[in-house]
């Protein structure tokens, strides 16, 4: 059991990270913390994906010194996927931060519950 856990230590770390992110996302009311949690979740997935593609004693798949044997290099596909994923999560984070700034300028707080209450009040005043 312990040996098994040790063999898959990176996968375990990824699961723990993902759980931390997931719980923070659902439980915390602070918008910044939610955004950080989303990033932690994404990072956990990338860690898992990167560890899948890594084979010890091999190098990144860029041809160096004219060596073209496959045994010298790791599988480039997971790295490519991680890069795509990072681009996605950067853009998503940027949009979310932009929204957060707009909300903060309007309601002067980052607590989602308070913002929700204020928006509710606003609506009642309108009608």
């Amino acid at each position: 059991m312990l040996q098994n856990l040790w063999d898959h230590r990176i996968a375990c770390a990824a699961v723990v990270l993902f759980a931390i992110g997931f719980a923070t996302l659902l439980l915390h009311r602070n918008l910044m913390k939610k955004i950080i949690a989303l990033n932690i979740m994404d990072t956990a997935t990338y860690l898992f994906l990167t560890s899948l593609g890594y084979i010890s004693n091999r190098t990144a798949s860029i041809i160096t010194d004219g060596v073209t044997e496959m045994e010298r290099y790791v599988n480039p596909l997971p790295a490519g996927l991680v890069l795509t994923g990072i681009v996605v999560s950067v853009s998503v984070t940027a949009v979310l931060l932009g929204l957060t700034i707009r909300l903060y300028q309007r309601y002067h707080t980052l607590n989602l519950d308070e913002i929700y209450m204020m928006a509710q009040q606003e609506q009642e005043e309108d009608t």
Binding site: F18, L25, D42, T45, L81, L96, T100, R102, L103, A119
Partner: peptide
């Protein structure tokens, strides 16, 4: 104000969903 709040909530739910989807794809891979 309400649309900004709604879009934050929409984004959070959507990103939760796509995070789980990505993890599923990685496990399948």
């Amino acid at each position: 104000g309400r649309t900004t709040l709604a879009s934050v909530r929409y984004m959070i739910f959507s990103l939760l969903g796509s995070g789980l989807f990505l993890l599923g794809v990685v496990v399948a891979y």
